[in-house]
Design a protein around this nucleic acid. Structure first.
Lengths: 224, 224
DNA sequence: GTATGTGAAACCGTTCACAGCA
DNA sequence: TGCTGTGAACGGTTTCACATAC
C-alpha cells in the first residue's frame, strides 16, 4: 500500500463489508474468504482484497479472514468505535423520519439537536431531542459537540442551513436537499438526492424509441 | 455517437442538467454555454458536451445551447414528459415522508398506492392515497398501472417486498432498505442507503492517526 | 471571435493472474 | 493445497485540444 490515494467509493464498500460481516458474526460464522464475502456483497473478490490492502493485511493466506477481527479493523478505519453526534436542520416530514430512523439510532449516531425555522415546530420533543429555533444553532452545536449536520429543509433554504452549520463549527454535512451546496474546502458534504435516482429509473424504463432523436438512426443502448 | 454504451452516471448528470436548466429558464435566461452550465453544476464543460453527444447535437457553435430547447430534449431522453406512477411499500416514518415529499409530487411522479403489513396502518389516508394491506398489492398495482415501487420497510422485509412488487409486474424499484436486493435481470433497482453515506462522512472526519495500523508506517491519504 | 462536437490522451478504478505464505 | 496480497493488464470515464460551424 504506502501513501496511495483511496477512492471514496472504496470507503463505501468498506462500510458494506462491515454491515455484512456483522450479519455473519451474528450467525456464528468465524472465518470468511474474500470469495464468500464478495458473493454476499455482490462484487468481485479481488476488489475486497484491494480495498483492504489500502489499510493493511488483515487476512491469513490459505485460510481467509477472521470475521470478528476484520470487523474490528474495519471499525477502526471507519471510526465505528466512536459515537457521532448529529444535528438536524428542518423538522418536516423527512426530518422527523430521520430523527427516528433506525439506521442512525443504534448504529453509532445520535441526534443531539434539531432546528426549525417555523415557530410552531419549536419546542416539540421527538425522542430525546427538542426542536430549537435557528437562532440557537450556534450555541447548541458548540455546547453539544455536534460533528455532523443533516440538512432536510426546502431547496431554497439549504445553502443558508449549510452556512449556519459551518459557522457553528460543523465539518461534515449530509444533505438531502436537491441542490449543490457551496462549502469551504475543509467541509465534507455527502448528498442524498432522491429524484436523481428516480430519474435514472425513469430513463431505464423509458423505451428507447420514444426518445429517438431527429439526428439519429439508431437508439442508444444502456450500459448494463 | 452511434451505438455506444451510455454510462449510468451520465444519466444522473442529465437529470442534474435538467434541474439547473429549469432554474435558468425560470430566471429568464435564454442561452447558456457549456462552460456556464458546467460551472453551475460543478463539473467539467467537456463532460456536459460529451453527455449530450450520446443523444444528439443540441447546441449552436459559437453561441451555446438554447435553454428551453435543451430542456425539452433532455426531457424527452429522460422521459420527463410522462407522469410516472409509484407504489409505496412500508408506511412508517420514512414512507410517510416520501408520500408527501415535494421532489416526487409535482416532478413527474405520483403515488397511486401504498401498502403496509400492520393492520392499524391500513385504511389511513395520506393525501389521495389510502394505505392498503399487502394482500391487495397484486391487484392494485395492476389496476392502477404502477411502474415503479418504492421500498421503505425494515431490512428484514425488503426482499419480500421486492418479490411481491415484481410479481405484480413492477419493473423499477427505488430501495431505501440497507440490503442488496436479489432481483431478476429485467428489473431495475436503485438503492438509497443513508448509513453508507454517513459512514463515508465519518471516515473523512476520523483523524488518520486514530486508524493507523500495526503494519503501517504512514497513514493513508484520502482522495480529494 | 466564440462555443460546440469529437478524436486522442490521460487518468482512475476494476479485474486478472500469479507469487507468496500458512 | 488454498487463499491472501499485489503488480500488471484492462476497460471505462474524464479531460484535453482542436477542427468545425455559426
Amino acid at each position: 500500500m504506502k501513501n496511495v490515494k483511496i477512492p471514496s467509493i472504496a470507503i463505501t464498500r468498506l462500510s458494506l463489508y462491515a454491515r455484512n460481516l456483522k450479519l455473519l458474526d451474528q450467525k456464528g460464522v468465524e472465518v470468511v474468504s474474500s470469495v464468500r464475502l464478495a458473493d454476499i456483497c455482490g462484487i468481485n473478490p479481488a476488489q475486497i482484497r484491494k480495498d483492504l490492502a489500502y489499510f493493511g493485511q488483515f487476512g491469513v493466506r490459505g485460510v481467509g479472514y477472521y470475521v470478528k477481527e476484520l470487523l474490528f479493523e474495519i471499525g477502526k478505519i471507519l471510526g465505528l468505535d466512536k459515537e457521532w453526534r448529529l444535528a438536524l436542520v428542518g423538522v418536516g416530514n423527512l426530518g422527523f423520519a430521520l430523527l427516528r430512523h433506525a439506521q442512525f439510532v443504534n448504529h453509532g449516531y445520535t441526534f443531539v439537536a434539531a432546528f426549525d425555522r417555523k415557530p410552531k415546530r419549536v419546542g416539540i420533543k421527538i425522542g430525546d431531542v427538542e426542536v430549537a429555533p435557528l437562532e440557537n444553532m450556534n450555541r447548541l452545536v458548540k455546547e453539544r459537540g455536534v460533528e455532523i449536520g443533516v440538512i432536510a429543509v426546502m431547496p431554497g433554504s439549504a445553502q443558508k442551513a449549510a452556512d449556519m452549520l459551518i459557522r457553528a463549527g460543523v465539518c461534515g454535512i449530509l444533505n438531502f436537499a436537491p441542490i449543490q451546496l457551496q462549502c469551504l474546502a475543509h467541509v465534507f458534504v455527502e448528498n442524498i438526492d432522491f429524484s436523481l435516482k428516480l430519474d435514472v429509473l425513469r430513463y431505464r424504463l423509458t423505451p428507447a424509441r420514444s426518445r429517438r432523436h431527429r439526428s439519429h438512426s439508431k437508439p442508444p443502448q444502456l450500459l448494463a
